[in-house]
């Protein structure tokens, strides 16, 4: 099995009213970092709620062949990690150690195992300077790292990160991707966003529009659909837009997001 997550004919509507997903169908490969791209209010957060068992699904979702249903719920929950970054109550405690330990304490892990695991996560995410701090004394970037830490602490097979990047700058996002690259061997990563700014950093991209998958491909191929993306309401980031248009005229042959690189390429 190359796929870790399978979604089959998933349908969901709010209060039998507005249909959000209509026979949604896709699968996610193991050991990849995936972007779920959807415009504002397209149901990204709702999808994460469905995939993490918060909203009811009808046995249409499985992770590593474990179907999400009543019997499997515990096994299923152990194989996922989830963070909603826009949730004002995303932290349960006021300090980092308690926050990281909680998922494992909740699963009745022994204390020495918990400590070991926290050290492992500390090393993966470069949390050396954060462990003994209060959450309120962390920068937002550090908070993001801690939250990712809580999602991977129990070694899940996949993590769902809902809108993690909206308040990070480019440099911080690149650093987060370095960590995710280390994680992805064991834990597949599934991230939602409404913009394409970091699209080239991902392995695979799913674009949803009107409750269905519009495009599912690698970033470079997704960008070839720039007209469809614009029609679906996405903004093509300026440098990517320029690259695509310049390659249309045969002036360059790749997507360049760095201004220096672009200038050096164009005016040799």
């Amino acid at each position: 099995m190359d796929n870790i997550l399978e979604v089959n004919n998933l349908t969901y509507s709010y209060n039998n009213n507005k249909t959000i997903f209509n026979n949604l169908q896709f699968s996610i490969k193991k050991e990849t970092i995936n972007l779920l791209l959807g415009s504002n209010s397209s149901g990204k957060t709702t999808l994460i709620r469905l995939l993490s068992g918060i909203l009811p699904t009808n046995e249409n979702v499985s992770i590593d062949e474990i179907k999400l249903n009543k019997q499997n719920i515990r096994k299923y929950m152990l194989s996922i990690g989830v963070v909603f970054f826009d949730d004002p109550n995303k932290f349960l405690f006021d300090n980092v150690l308690d926050e990281l330990a909680f998922p494992l304490e909740n699963l009745n892990y022994k204390k020495d195992i918990i400590i070991n695991r926290i050290y492992e996560v500390r090393n993966i995410l470069d949390l050396q300077n954060c462990l003994n701090k209060k959450i309120s004394n962390l920068t937002y970037y550090e908070q993001v790292k801690v939250l990712i830490g809580t999602s991977i602490i129990h070694k899940p097979k996949i993590i769902f990160l809902d809108n993690p990047f909206s308040k990070l700058n480019d440099l911080e996002i690149k650093k987060v991707f370095k960590f995710l690259d280390k994680i992805k061997k064991d834990t597949t990563v599934f991230i939602t966003s409404s913009n394409l700014d970091q699209i080239l950093l991902f392995d695979d991209v799913i674009v949803i529009d009107n409750g269905n998958v519009l495009i599912h491909d690698n970033p470079k191929n997704v960008l070839q659909h720039d007209n469809e993306l614009s029609k679906a309401g996405f903004i093509i980031p300026p440098m990517i837009d320029l690259s695509l248009k310049l390659s249309f005229y045969g002036i360059i042959d790749e997507v360049i997001t760095d201004v220096n690189e672009m200038v050096n390429k164009l005016w040799k």
Partner: peptide
């Protein structure tokens, strides 16, 4: 982009907001 092209490469681009204007200038320049 305009600043670097003009200062480092001797191009003559105008300062533009819209990608369509930028591309016209770049096309003419290169």
């Amino acid at each position: 982009l305009t600043y670097k092209a003009n200062n480092e490469k001797g191009a003559h681009l105008f300062y533009r907001k819209d990608v369509r204007d930028v591309i016209k200038d770049v096309y003419k320049s290169v």
